[in-house]
């Protein structure tokens, strides 16, 4: 089972919900225990590790294939620059110029070069790490500074972890904010999307966007968690009613919770009622998925 935690808006508490859910879920596994993994897919700023303090046991480089231009063969025809969607190639002075920071490693230039002047060589773009935080498995991707495509690192991380291949394993993915390519890559092949929002106009606005991505583009079952919940929950409730999205949990807006978070501690270690809520959150997600597949 693969659950991706996403939000659209940044700062709503994706990581908080993801790490607490993952830790609780691994704690409640009874014999035969399923392995629970937390994958930090926010590779531009992975921070789930701060809360889980995992022991890293393995590390691997994430590479992608970048074009290398043989300028002795290059005739400066400009086909590579024409097909490059990302303006990573120019042709000036009769030869190709390559700007690797802009390259998304799509391979179009190599495929289209009529002279065969372009070859591809693997170049490191990030680091993958995995290990364990107690009974919870942990893995994260870290994008190399200066590179613009986190997608390759996320894809590599999921592949390295065989994410979703073994039904006996539970994966909880902490996605990056937004609704762009990195989030799409994180959501790909997930069974369920947990949308973390906050009861503000900004939270609602981006919840609508992420709902469009998850529901309308991916046709993926989803549910909402309202973080910093309080008297303004109405705007989120109204939207969820309209779109028929269940609200599975509310984390109250509280100073104590904020302090626990700022100290890098898990909420479930400080707050027994919250721990019970996280415990039932996983059960509710399982139930949602079962009802879904039964209805099909």
């Amino acid at each position: 089972m693969v659950i991706t935690v996403a939000s659209g808006k940044g700062g709503t508490g994706k990581t908080t919900i993801a790490v607490n859910l993952a830790k609780t879920t691994s704690d409640i596994q009874t014999v035969p225990a399923k392995t629970v993994w937390l994958l930090d897919c926010d590779v531009e700023e992975p921070n789930a590790g701060l809360f889980l303090e995992p022991q890293i046991t393995e590390e691997k480089q994430s590479s992608r294939f970048l074009p290398v231009f043989d300028l002795d063969i290059c005739t400066g025809c400009g086909r590579c620059a024409e097909v490059c969607e990302y303006n990573a190639i120019a042709v000036a002075g009769g030869k190709a110029m390559f700007f690797k920071e802009l390259c998304h490693a799509c391979g179009s230039c190599t495929l289209n070069c009529p002279e065969g002047a372009i070859s591809e060589t693997p170049q490191p773009v990030g680091t993958l790490r995995r290990g364990e935080a107690g009974n919870l498995g942990f893995a994260e991707g870290i994008l190399e500074i200066g590179f613009s495509s986190p997608v390759a690192v996320i894809r590599d991380l999921k592949k390295w972890m065989s994410c979703g291949l073994d039904p006996e394993e539970i994966f909880i993915l902490d996605a990056s904010p937004g609704t762009a390519c990195p989030v799409v890559e994180s959501l790909r092949n997930s069974d369920f999307a947990l949308l973390v929002t906050e009861p503000t106009p900004f939270g609602l606005h981006d919840l609508k966007l992420i709902t469009q991505l998850v529901r309308d583009a991916f046709s993926m079952p989803c549910a909402v968690v309202i973080n910093k919940s309080g008297e303004n929950d109405g705007i989120i409730e109204e939207f969820c009613r309209e779109r028929n999205i269940p609200i599975l949990m509310r984390v109250p807006l509280s100073r104590k919770i904020a302090e626990t978070y700022s100290a890098g501690r898990l909420l479930i270690t400080q707050d027994a009622p919250l721990m019970n809520q996280f415990r039932s959150l996983f059960e509710k997600i399982t139930l949602e998925l079962e009802t879904r597949s039964a209805a099909r």
């Binding site: 620059a81 990302y86 303006n87 990573a88 190639i89 120019a90 042709v91 000036a92 700007f99 802009l102 613009s148």
Partner: peptide, 13 residues
């Protein structure tokens, strides 16, 4: 989205 300077310079070329 990115590489505007490169694209504009290519137009000059």
């Amino acid at each position: 989205r990115g590489g505007a300077g490169i694209q504009a310079a290519q137009l000059m070329v």
